[in-house]
Design a protein around this nucleic acid. Sequence first.
RNA 1: GCCGCAAUAGCUCAGUCGGUAGAGCAUUUCAUUCGUAACGAAAAGGUCGUGGGUUCGAGUCCCACUCGCGGCUCCA
Length: 645
Amino acid sequence: MINITFPDGSVKQFEAGITPLAIAESISPRLAQDVLAASVNDKEWDLSRPINEDASLKLFKWDDPEGKHAFWHSSAHLLAEALQELYPGVKFGIGPAIENGFYYDIDPAGHNITSADFPAIEKKMLELARRKEAIVRADITKADALKMFGDRGEEYKCELISELEDGTITTYTQGAFTDLCRGPHIPTTAPIKAAKIMSLAGAYWRGDEKRNQLVRVYGITFPKQKMLDEYLALLEEAKKRDHRKLGKEMELFAFSANVGAGLPLWLPKGAALRDRLEQFLRKIQKQYGYQQVITPHIGNKNLYVTSGHYAKYGKDSFQPIHTPEEGEEYLLKPMNCPHHCEIFRAFPRSYRELPLRLAEFGTVYRYEQSGELHGLTRVRGFTQDDAHIFCAPDQIKDEFLKVMDIIFYIFKALKFDNFEAQISLRDPNNKEKYIGSDENWHLAEQAIIEACEEKGLKARKELGEAAFYGPKLDFMVKDAIGRRWQLGTIQVDYNLPERFQLEYTGADNQKHRPVMIHRAPFGSMERFVAVLLEHTAGKFPLWLAPDQAVILPISEKFNDYAYEVARQLSAADVRVIVDDRNEKIGRKIRDNEMRRIPYMLIVGEKEAENGEISVRKQGEGDKGTMKIATFAQNLAEEVNNSINQ
RNA sequence: GCCGCAAUAGCUCAGUCGGUAGAGCAUUUCAUUCGUAACGAAAAGGUCGUGGGUUCGAGUCCCACUCGCGGCUCCA
């Protein structure tokens, strides 16, 4: 007999060799039906894999990430089985579960697979699933594995096997399909009741652009058709929140092929919105001791040779601008830091000036690869809400804490509550990739980790993700369809102070090298507005909304009164417009609801007589009648509350 | 940059087998002067992304380019 400990701490005895599925059955038939995966002593475990000794057991259902993961991982195998039947000779790369569904990378071996084939693939998957084949785990020696997959011509699998350690290799088989796999899987394919192939894409084998490009088939499956329908409906909804669509509808920004790919044009409403965001940040930064600076959009090539950026990125960037002067070259600035370093160098600096915080809404130009451009989130010309803090090494942590305060304040004011934080650290096994002393790295990494702990911020630590010049803390937010975008960033830099030979005189009357912190709470104005649009579905907080209120006269007879109301509200700093079209009130309400203007102010005979307005809130309906001044006052209060919580 | 897919009116889209361009919304005009989510009528709007090719004839077939979309790679 063995003791099995459950998550609630209770312990039950079972025969040695019992499976998690059998244990689930002993608890309840319903649980046995719903359970998809298990963990034994916190190790992933198949439901049908025997447990031979005392262990702690967790059972996972659909609602657990681990349950979905096993379900989708098995679905990837099912997809492979279907592809193997439909396209004989295809070779398989890898096929993992992902956040929403799964994919399989295949070498189509001459077959031409297109989206027209999706229904046939889906049909085949479900047909195979209905056979309710068991998914069977087997241990295999390295030699046998190499022979087995080698005989089938599975070169990609053989490459993977050759890197595995003998004795740790397992395969999973369902029906006629056997895959190299670590597991875990669901016991049979039976629960897979709905399947959808989502898209095809190219993907380099092992993520290496120098190697073969495979076809990546993305799919998703569910235990119920209804769940698939709901998922697809959700995706449709998400598409409506796409910032590219909203930006056009709301007249915030546009692109023009004549101006160039990835070069956004900010329209009047968008520019005003961006300006409001800038003012908001400027105000906070002022409180935190930042000083605004302004630097040119171009810089002499030598500046970037000094910074090291030219050597590293010069070839892949916008190429130098030539002047009438022989040999003179300028670059569009790809970042603001070198300019700010020169500001630091403009005077002899004392430790008394530190931390010196130089801020600039600096527009930079980077030649992003054409395939990478994406709406406002990835562009070739954008404005960073940049600042560089020059400080002494022992001030890093304190400065980090202050920057985090600013970022949290912003995220709170804009209701970004489900952001993710990532601490990017040096790869300790590959130190030569990085510049700076061990001591400085340790100091900076510790400062970041401690700052996060002090703020109670749960941040994922990623080794090897640091920039070559220092560790960083990034804030990530998801867009409408779940893609992650980096917004705020705080980075420690030992490189530039070194390269620009920055120094200050310390209290000891000796020269010292400052440390630089790069930070951008929004990341860039472009990306931030994009993510903000998708988060709010275009319904901006009142203080940001391009138009805060629209006045709707009942008929043209009341247009004069409407403009009088507009005059008074404008005088009270309300951003207000008048919808003076010759349309019925129902039509005006509908149109303006769709324009997402927070308040609609309806004026007709009654209101004109009493100097009042009828207030309607977007998405909520009629709020009753009030004096113009009362509305202005309420609005001002609401704006205040939304910024300061 | 790579793989795949697309590009038709301001927007969303239809256009069959290659035979000379269509709808809804938006716009303009007329009518209406209206009380909380779409009143009605009419008009105007297109070198079918650009350039080449095949063909008696190309929105439709082929090639290149541009822009865009989904991924991959990249992201100072």
